[in-house]
């Protein structure tokens, strides 16, 4: 069983939902990212999504775009992201680590090199934003051969037949994008999300996580009541932007704890 599946199973037996924070590798600096990763776990994160910086993050709102720009200014790209991931894994063997990124950096270094780096850093899952299943058969096949979960996004616009197709390829969990929009948007409609998550769950036994519009304990609680995981990203990155090096870990910890308590 993969680290991701194990984590979901153990949460389920404790009647808890997974809390998955997102940060971008190298934001605000390589050193701080390393510290933040451990802080997230200490404060209650069950898994971590680590963003691979990209120059053209089309699916991201302004907050995560800025995170990517800061990371790139620190010379952090896909290789440094793996270095950070590897170091995290050296000191934490239990927390699933999921990389989230865009197709171009992965193709630029090549699938084989990418897989080698994934294995070396013992990464658990990958979300590739702009690789829909029809364009990524070879890639997804290779991920599976290497026991890396291929996590797919489902959107409010994804039709039922397509959901069924995607489920066949997905492993680990399904990531439901809660709204029509980019990361950090604020137009989440809880009732609609509930309805859609129920529909997806009726089609699969895979856990379903929800992300893109979750910013506060109230929303997190509501969404967690009908899903298996919540992903929170822009809200944490805003905390990074507001804080200085001395209070950053504490400020992030507060947010994570406030959500941990309610899901």
């Amino acid at each position: 069983m993969s680290r991701i599946s194990k984590t979901f199973a153990s949460l389920k037996s404790n009647n808890k939902k997974a809390l998955i924070p997102f940060i971008t590798a190298g934001d605000p600096s390589v050193e701080m990212t390393k510290k933040i990763l451990h802080q997230l776990v200490e404060s209650g994160a069950d898994m971590i999504e680590l963003g691979i910086p990209f120059s053209d993050p089309m699916a991201d709102g302004p907050v995560i775009q800025r995170a990517s720009e800061r990371a790139l200014a620190n010379n952090v790209g896909i290789r440094k992201t793996f270095e950070i991931a590897k170091e995290f894994r050296n000191t934490d063997q239990d927390t699933p680590l999921i990389l989230m990124g865009y197709a171009n950096p992965i193709e630029a270094i090549g699938f084989d090199e990418f897989l080698r780096l994934c294995k070396e850093a013992d990464v658990d899952g990958i979300i590739t934003v702009d690789y829909p299943p029809e364009e990524s058969k070879e890639y997804v096949g290779k991920l599976k051969e290497n026991d890396i979960d291929a996590i797919f996004l489902l959107a409010p616009t994804t039709e039922k037949e397509r959901i069924q197709q995607i489920i066949k390829q997905a492993t680990g969990f399904l990531y439901y994008v809660s709204l029509k929009g980019v990361t950090g948007a604020q137009n989440i409609d809880i009732d609609q999300v509930k309805h859609r998550v129920a529909e997806i769950k009726s089609l699969t036994d895979l856990p379903v996580g929800v992300g893109f519009g979750v910013r506060d304990p109230e929303t997190a609680k509501a969404v967690a009541s009908f899903s298996d995981a919540i992903v929170i990203g822009s809200r944490i990155i805003q905390e990074i932007e507001k804080s200085n090096e001395n209070n950053m870990l504490e400020n992030i910890s507060k947010i994570i704890k406030s959500i941990r308590e309610v899901i």
Partner: peptide, 9 residues
């Protein structure tokens, strides 16, 4: 067609 899922439809 390399786009995020929301645009597929």
């Amino acid at each position: 067609t390399f786009v995020a899922e929301t645009l597929i439809e």
